[in-house]
């Protein structure tokens, strides 16, 4: 099965529009990246309030420095990740505390490099999830992270079980297209 990825405006193009002072592009960029940025900040700062502050500073920095982004020198996602990471580190430094890099997996063995790679992986997957149609994203998030069975998801969303499975399959296929270059 092949699922076409919606031809939404690229992240790179949005950043270029933000560089030109386009507020609508800024709002769309926030819609796409707010949850991935917030997720990373919450994991690394371990405090919702400070994570929110770091996310706010991330988007303020995006607005201020969008002109420094060059699409030929890296992906938009990587640029946003770097901006967010710096804002999070800054927020951690203000308290003179080390950044708490919560491991992505339940392993005591993960070193700093593995944790950094895990954070980058999670950021990309979370960002890709934001590009799915809402009905597919909701089903995938419930299937993988809620602990609900598919029958319970069907009941919760008030749709037939077959619809849940179709949306799961379609969402996974669409994600596959969005994450072609990402390896687990």
């Amino acid at each position: 099965m092949s699922v076409a990825v919606a031809t939404a405006e690229s992240d790179s193009r949005l950043i270029e529009r933000v560089a030109g002072g386009d507020r609508d592009a800024f709002t769309e960029l926030y819609r796409r990246f707010a949850r991935p940025v917030l997720a990373m900040a919450m994991r690394q700062l371990g405090d919702n309030g400070r994570a929110e502050e770091a996310a706010q500073e991330t988007f303020a920095a995006v607005w201020r420095s969008a002109r420094s982004y060059r699409s030929d020198r890296g992906s938009a996602s990587a640029w946003l990740y770097a901006v967010a990471r710096h804002a999070i580190i800054d927020r951690a430094r203000q308290r003179r505390e080390p950044v708490v890099e919560v491991p992505e997996q339940a392993s005591d063995e993960a070193g700093p490099e593995e944790r950094a790679e895990g954070a980058w992986l999670a950021f990309r997957v979370h960002s890709a999830l934001e590009k799915l149609p809402e009905r597919e994203r909701a089903v995938l998030e419930l299937a993988y992270w809620s602990g609900l069975s598919q029958a319970e998801i069907a009941s919760y969303l008030d749709v037939p079980l077959g619809t849940v499975k179709t949306r799961t399959r379609t969402g996974l296929a669409r994600l596959s297209g969005l994450l072609e270059e990402v390896r687990p």
Binding site: A34, L38, F59, E104, Q105, G118, L121, A122, R169, L175
Partner: peptide
């Protein structure tokens, strides 16, 4: 699909939603 399934199983959940206070603060940027 298995590759994406593996990716989703390997990462933590994103936050359920974004606080309205953050959205409001960013809107003012």
């Amino acid at each position: 699909l298995s590759r994406v399934d593996g990716l989703l199983r390997s990462i933590p959940a994103p936050p359920h939603d974004v606080p309205a206070t953050l959205t409001q603060a960013v809107a003012e940027v």
